[in-house]
Write a protein that binds this DNA or RNA. Structure first.
Lengths: 143, 143
DNA sequence: CCTTTTCATATCGTATTACGATATATATAT
DNA sequence: ATATATATATCGTAATACGATATGAAAAGG
């Protein structure tokens, strides 16, 4: 039986600490990522949008982008508008379905994303162990 | 040798897809967490603050909270002010060092956090495999 | 076919929240 | 005792996602 715990639910100060630790590791990664994006002049969500477009097999649209980013379609439309404005993304209205806006990265965006991704891979080498461990401890614990 | 890749850097569409997939899993967890907090009337950052205070061994202060949440101290001060306002946190100025504000959860906050944490543990049981796998694939890949 | 409904995207006003710049009070050091 | 550092606070600002709503295009129903 655990030292300091709520018998009824199994929740204890330790459980809070485990989840808090996981969230802290998450924050460290996200903070790194935001800083890296900012360093090349990108708002964090624009970085994510570029990644989503580049990582998607096939053609991205406003709708598929919204789905991947878990935002509302009209929010994705605004995001894309800002990125078209800053020459990161091109928007071509679909040939068969003229409602759909097909998205593609400009060379400028590809260069930025390439660099960012290399940096992320390097940083993830460092952060991964702590992140994986923190996550594992949570799900191992309540068993 | 990988199918479609940039020889010089090892970066490929697959790498983008791997990182994008990881970020997507991350988003799913964060979206769940935000929704769960919202369902009990808490802004997401206030939930994190409660968790940080509850999970910290020893006494929390504005400064320690800022550190855990990776925000500036003055931002933490504002956050705490909002939480004191809504009777989630009590702030007691330190006895020896009267600059420090010692933080504690109110019973109301403890009840909310308890419930949220139980929900998070349950959801993490579900999300953990995909999250761990997505993370593992990134660091396994570039080796 | 032509009208209704649904789908994909767009626009506008609003609210939240973190930040920079700055301020104040207390503690520590010279 | 004064200077410097530390802990927290305040105010104005900016970024961005959302709700409500709108528009145009495609699909479905009769």
């Amino acid at each position: 039986m655990p030292a300091v715990s709520d018998i009824k639910t199994g929740l204890s100060a330790e459980q809070y600490a485990l989840i808090a630790a996981f969230r802290y590791e998450l924050r460290r990664f996200l903070a790194f990522s935001e800083a890296a994006a900012a360093a090349v002049g990108l708002p964090p969500q624009q970085h994510q949008a570029l990644l989503a477009i580049a990582g998607k097999p096939g053609v991205s649209t406003i709708g598929s982008l919204a789905e991947q980013l878990l935002i509302a379609p009209h929010t994705a439309a605004e995001l894309v508008a800002r990125m078209v404005e800053s020459a990161l993304v091109t928007k071509t209205m679909g040939a068969q379905d003229r409602r759909r806006a097909e998205l593609a990265l400009t060379p400028k965006a590809e260069a930025l994303l390439h660099r960012l991704t290399a940096d992320h891979l390097k940083e993830l080498e460092i952060l991964e162990p702590a992140l994986a461990k923190a996550l594992g401890r949570i799900t191992d614990a309540d068993r």
